[in-house]
Amino acid sequence: MNQPLPSADAVISLHDQLLARPGWPKSHAPSQPQASVWHWIETNHLFNSRLWAEEDLARRTQVSDAEIAANKRAIDGFNQARNDATERVDELLLVALGLVDPASANSDAPVSRVPAGARLNSETAGSMIDRLSIMALKVHAMAQQTRRTDADAAHIATSQVKLQRLLEQRADLGACLDSLLADAQAGRAYFKVYRQFKMYNDPRFNPVLVAERQARGGQA
C-alpha cells in the first residue's frame, strides 16, 4: 500500500460524505481500486449502511412473515460482507506496517511479525474503523431526529443531548485509532488479523444446514 496510513479524521470525513450523498447506499460502488485500503473502508461503510437500513425494515409489524424473512437473510449477507471488508482493511494495514507476512495475510492463519517489546492491542485497527462507520450512522440518524418537525420540544432536546454524546464518543474512538496506528508504526504496538469465521453463514459449518443437506441425501 503506497500511501499514508489513514487518519481518523479522514475516515470520519469519508463516512459523513458518503452518508450525505444522494442515493447512498443503494446506488453506489467503491471508487478506489481494490488494492487500496480506502476501497475496503468504503466497502465496509457501504455494507454497514445497507445493514442499518435492513435492520429498520426487519422491525416492521404490518408486512408478511416472508418479507421479514427476506430482511433477515439480507442482514446475514450484509453482515458477512461488512466483516470481510473489516478483515481486508486489517490485512492491508498490517502489510503496510510490516506486521504480517504478506504471503499469509489473506489466509486463515496470518503469520504476525512482532517487534521486540511491542504490546498486543486486543482490538484491531480495522474493527475500530468498522466501529467508526457505525458511529457515523448513529450520528447521522440522531442528527435527523434533531431536525424533525413532527416531534415535540422534549424529543428534540433529548436528541440533541444524545447527538453531542455520540460525537464525543466518535472523537474518542478516532483518537484511539490514531494512537494505535502511530504506536504500531513506531514498533510500540501491534495487532493481528482476526478471522470472524461466521459459521452460521457457511453451509459447511452450520449444523442445521448440514443436517438439511444430509436429509436430502447430500454429503456433510
Rank of each mutant, 00 (worst) to 15 (best):
N2C: 03
P4L: 07
P6H: 10
P6D: 04
A8L: 02
I12Y: 00
S13E: 13
S13N: 14
D16F: 08
A20R: 12
A20F: 01
A20N: 08
A20I: 01
R21W: 07
P22G: 08
W24P: 01
P25S: 07
K26L: 12
P30V: 01
S31A: 14
Q32S: 13
P33D: 04
V37A: 14
I41F: 03
E42G: 00
H45E: 09
H45A: 03
H45L: 15
L46G: 11
S49T: 09
L51A: 07
L57H: 14
A58E: 07
A58C: 04
R59M: 15
R59Y: 10
T61P: 00
T61H: 09
S64W: 11
A66T: 11
I68N: 11
I68E: 08
N71E: 15
K72N: 15
R73G: 01
N79S: 12
N79M: 01
N79R: 12
Q80A: 10
Q80W: 10
N83G: 09
A85G: 06
R88E: 10
D90G: 03
E91K: 13
L94M: 05
A96N: 05
A96K: 14
L97K: 12
L97A: 02
G98M: 04
G98E: 03
V100H: 03
V100D: 00
D101P: 05
P102G: 08
S107E: 11
D108N: 15
D108R: 13
S112Q: 10
R113M: 11
P115C: 02
P115F: 02
A118F: 05
R119C: 01
R119H: 05
L120C: 11
L120K: 15
N121I: 07
S122V: 11
S122N: 11
A125V: 06
M128A: 12
I129A: 14
I129E: 10
D130I: 04
R131W: 06
L132A: 07
L132Y: 02
L132D: 02
L132N: 06
I134R: 13
I134A: 12
L137D: 05
V139P: 01
H140N: 11
H140Q: 08
M142Q: 13
M142A: 05
Q145F: 07
Q145V: 00
T146Q: 01
R147N: 06
A151I: 03
A151K: 06
A151E: 03
A153N: 11
A157H: 08
S159C: 02
S159N: 07
K162Y: 00
Q164T: 02
L166H: 13
L167V: 09
E168H: 14
Q169C: 00
R170C: 01
G174Y: 04
L177K: 11
D178W: 14
L180R: 05
L181A: 04
L181H: 05
A182H: 03
A182F: 07
D183A: 15
R188W: 02
Y190G: 03
Y194K: 13
R195W: 02
Q196P: 01
Q196D: 12
F197M: 02
Y200K: 14
N201Y: 09
D202T: 09
F205Q: 06
N206K: 04
P207T: 05
P207E: 09
V208Y: 11
L209P: 00
V210E: 00
V210Y: 00
E212C: 12
R213M: 05
R216P: 03
Q219C: 03
Q219M: 07
Q219Y: 08
A220G: 14
